[in-house]
Design a protein around this nucleic acid. Sequence first.
DNA 1: GGATGAATGGAATAAATATTCCAAAACGTC
DNA 2: GACGTTTTGGAATATTTATTCCATTCATCC
Lengths: 279, 279
Amino acid sequence: MDHAAPPFPAPTTVEEFRDRLSALSDSLPRRMRQCADFVAANADRIAVSTVAELAAGAEVPPSALMRFCQIMGFSGFSEMQKLFRDAYTPGWPDYSTRLRNLKDNGAGSPAALLAEFVEAGRLSLEALAKSVDEAALEAAVARLAKAETVHVVGLRRAFPVASYLAYVFEKMSVPAMLHDGVGKLDHRFALRPGDALLAITFAPYSEETLTLAQDARARGLPVVAMTDHLTSPLARLADAVVAVPEVDFGAFRSLSATIAMALALAVAVGSARDEASTG
Amino acid sequence: MDHAAPPFPAPTTVEEFRDRLSALSDSLPRRMRQCADFVAANADRIAVSTVAELAAGAEVPPSALMRFCQIMGFSGFSEMQKLFRDAYTPGWPDYSTRLRNLKDNGAGSPAALLAEFVEAGRLSLEALAKSVDEAALEAAVARLAKAETVHVVGLRRAFPVASYLAYVFEKMSVPAMLHDGVGKLDHRFALRPGDALLAITFAPYSEETLTLAQDARARGLPVVAMTDHLTSPLARLADAVVAVPEVDFGAFRSLSATIAMALALAVAVGSARDEASTG
DNA sequence: GGATGAATGGAATAAATATTCCAAAACGTC
DNA sequence: GACGTTTTGGAATATTTATTCCATTCATCC
């Protein structure tokens, strides 16, 4: 037998494709490896590229890429490309068309503003998906899951997020306290040993939030930060930092990414605690 | 001169392309019209289709589609396709790839949860862009812009949105009052003639919010509703209704769409008032 | 109703693109 | 360091896909 026919049937979904990719990639010769790596990182470009373009991107000759397609179980490149072209449609049937129409209502019109904020939100979410540090996120969850009571603080622009966190924690039966600054009471002494603080602030950083974080840290309590950069003043005070990129339109943040992150954090903490108590 | 050479230079961006499309589409013979209509509705598929496929979709022979490309100012189909292939990349460089990788961390892991919430938020935003009723939005803005003080109410899940609205109104110097239910004080008598109420609630509808809306209506004040359906109990009490579709993941709303709408509303109201006072 | 010009469809051609094949190189083994 | 095996690169070929051209149809105006 010459160069054995594909031992696998061809993947029929992008999911299957990725599964096979990660299954194979360990036992692959050098050039094939390059193909696999490049394809994994640029899967979305397969649909709109030629063999020659992809091969150039992966820095291999076209024939190597052809061989790669066959190793993946396809008859050739065209069959592989078809998979990605078919899978491409979902996402925006006419979403961008619609956005454009909204903006055509004239700059400053409510509909045009809405289109801008929708776009900002979407960009924020995409940026978040791309930039999230999974290890940092898990570290944050671990800290909060061990706390007796989770204290949440976030003021001004961060307050909507903080209040939503408090709501979700309550729904998940996680003991939590929202530090909302009502009556200028700072409640700093509500933080007891065994508790943890989840602090949220973005540039320009809120003084009160930083102060409370500082205070918690001084007393040896774990501080988890949700902020805009790893270099923010809050990050320096924290034991675990979750960075959330957020796109502004005009003076205002979309908060979409921040809220998505807050939800993930809260739900993960909630289920971690459930497992700890029932398991 | 035979069939005149393209009088236009080729569009260099998708925007320009659409502009030309709507400029031309009135003065086009039948088959060209079919091409234009189909392309307008399926612009996103140009990048991944062949001439034959698109022609079939538009129900014209391939040669008609070729001519259409030339009328649009391109040398041929390939040049037109190149525009869309290039424009295709920036949208989601590897966003969906990344989401998949996050989900691969295992169901229930923080990263996987985050991926789900990001996806829910994105879907919400897209649904909002598609479903928004521009006239209703403008009506809502008009009502609020005329009010002396804007009263904002939203409790539980809607509270983050309400509090963000209050923040934005403040930043834009719009007199606004947040009804937050602190101390179970309902502050209903703070609503004075000339004011308006912006009420936010989603199923299951919050009793207190409905009560306040009812009260405002009984006293003849305009009520603007932000809610999930035109049939919600709040909608019946309102003079203007803004419906916001929102996708849940698990038990929790992403709020992305709701916040985008809230921002658009608040900023539009803010600038409308500016114009009224300075103009 | 016939002449004129634009519009159309399909078949022929040109170009681009994928695919195969084989000789040369690299690698590991004895 | 020679031998068999695997991997590689590039040139030759096959296939698909875009593009052109022209005969025919359709509409319009005289």
